[in-house]
Design a protein around this nucleic acid. Structure first.
Lengths: 352, 352
DNA sequence: CTGAAAGCGCTTACAG
DNA sequence: CTGAAAGCGCTTACAG
């Protein structure tokens, strides 16, 4: 395997010049550069990361710390991050940590001091764990948070606009003709829950639709909580004509429950979710939902970390990336008779 | 940040002795070892990977090469691999490659020569790609294949017994009382397809149940092909009382179609899948399926690679790990009347 | 059981 | 625009 010395000798230059060419520094004469690059190609020379890392300030390693048994979100993050890393000459090291492992700090310390990564990407829920953040700050490792619960002023982050997306999907339901819309909330522990609820309420208000508090149910982002919420919502006399579950997994719980109860989706009940995870397109009917720009967020995170190498000291960036509405077959306009019967039941039961 | 020199000075030994302690070499006097370890703890000394890698023969890096847009399988592999790596003092670098990228070899070469990983884990379909295998062999990188289409004699592999698992799940259906069982095959491109079919046929034969060729349908592991296959199987007069789809995604297609056609699952139709991917537990009814020991396979792969460091030259290991049947609510015994009516229709239509 | 020396393959900090 | 020297922090190969 060729080294920088071999290349320098064959090209008739010093190793420093080879180094300059490999790092694309400006101050090399074009013909010198050409000559070096030719030899590099002939010898298939590739700088070794370990040597560059030991001698220099960079390791060309980005870490991805995650904790997610189902790994749906993380899979997409990783896909985006690994591709962008390759384009930039970096490599992605992944580490699965248990959120409340007793030796969490030690595990992070070990990884940081062994690898000396140029940056770390954190996904929920680790990006909201103060213990993790402190350990990394103490280690002096640059960090980017993906979809954090709350933005930390000094730590750059990348996220989407949950409130706006929730508002849009609610608008969609309203524009189809739905007036009584059930909402299933996520757990308090995740700020996305509050943001999505906020978007839902904003849309309802804008359309001057009153929100029946009884149609707002607490869930926890898990399938089972969608099932429970659906039982609550669908067993009422004045049941909603549409349900917006604030994530797909709960939406699938609603779908399963509706099917169990013999309620046709979407004819008798429209269902919308949030996330566009894999299964959303695998059920029947396919789930109308919001696609998070996860791969894009991951790419942006890598760029922020690599860019931070060059010029540090400027204020932390907080990026918000655009999302996408995915309209499938779980939503449609309610039939007139359905709207009428719901209105009647609703007024009888005292709800508006 | 403390270095080996700092530790040696403070402990009053040479750096070589510190090195020996850190690498757990036997020939160090217990009291010397104690003294060194105490200083290591005081100074929070951690050897740097880059220096170890540059000076020594190992990089303590394991690569995971994958190509999988949905990343379900890979997510589980990664989870297992990253945990075992940590236990062994290694780190996992992941790289997403496009199966038929034009510069596939160059991408692999770059990764291998930059990182000098101590080994590479390959998942399907990359583990069956001769271009990838050749590139890695030329680079001299040890490789372990996870669930390869076919075992390569010189390359260690880890897999489960697809045929046996398929046989077991078929046995389950038969023991519930099913006689007419539909089977949906996977694509020819994956050897698992043939193995699962083989297991299905073996079980049927063992129970002396004739297999109606018309109940065996070709699929391609995608949801849509499950839908199509289900239409074929369920629109017949003598339809099966159970369907075994050779992966979960197709099984969900069958489930969706049955629900669409008003066929109750499991009362009127039992459905079994294969994989136990996340959504299998998120639909209603939950899918009876086979859980692949993916995390275990990943752990074993790491162990094979790390072990290969110590003693190379012995014949390549080909491990087969045990799987697990996951019985949920998509399967049950067919009612007597269902069995009777199916028998009748079947004999009338000339099928057995 | 322990250590002194050399070297892994690069980048840094200077110098010209 | 180019180069000579030093050094990053370890392991290897050897010696005692």
């Amino acid at each position: 395997m060729a080294t920088i010395v071999d290349v320098a000798a064959r090209a008739g230059v010093s190793i420093k010049t080879v180094s300059r060419v490999m790092n694309e520094e400006a101050s090399v004469r074009p013909d010198t550069r050409e000559r070096v690059l030719k030899v590099v190609a002939e010898l298939k020379y590739r700088p070794k990361l370990s040597a560059r890392s030991l001698a220099g300030r960079r390791s060309f390693l980005i870490g991805l710390l995650y904790y997610d048994p189902s790994a749906v979100f993380v899979g997409a993050v990783q896909q985006g991050a690994t591709l962008r890393c390759r384009e930039l000459g970096y490599h992605l090291v992944v580490e699965s940590l248990h959120d409340d492992a007793p030796d969490l700090v030690r595990q992070i310390d070990r990884t940081v001091s062994a690898l000396q990564p140029d940056g770390m990407i954190l996904t929920p829920p680790l990006c909201d764990n103060p213990v993790v953040l402190r350990a990394l700050r103490d280690g002096g490792t640059p960090v980017v948070l993906i979809s954090p619960a709350r933005e930390v002023r000094k730590i750059p982050s990348v996220r989407m606009d949950d409130a706006k997306a929730a508002e849009e999907i609610t608008n969609l339901l309203v524009s189809l003709g739905h007036e009584r819309i059930g909402f299933i909330r996520g757990p308090d522990s995740q700020i996305a829950s509050a943001r999505r609820e906020q978007g839902f309420l904003a849309a309802m208000e804008r359309h001057r639709l009153s929100v029946d508090r009884d149609l707002m149910v607490q869930g926890n982002f898990i399938f089972g909580s969608g099932v429970e919420a659906a039982h609550h919502l669908l067993s009422r006399r004045a049941r909603p004509t549409a349900v917006f579950a604030s994530n797909d997994e709960m939406a699938l719980g609603v779908l399963a429950t509706a099917q169990r109860l013999g309620i046709r989706v979407p004819q008798d009940l429209s269902i919308a979710g949030f996330d566009d995870f894999h299964a959303a397109s695998l059920v029947w009917p396919g789930l109308t939902t919001v696609r998070q720009p996860i791969a894009g967020m991951a790419r942006a995170a890598v760029e922020l970390l690599v860019g931070a190498q060059e010029d540090s000291g400027r204020p932390a960036a907080h990026l918000v990336l655009p999302h996408e509405l995915v309209v499938r077959d779980s939503t449609c306009a309610p039939s007139r008779s359905l709207v009428r019967s719901v209105r009647r039941a609703s007024s009888e039961s005292g709800g508006q």
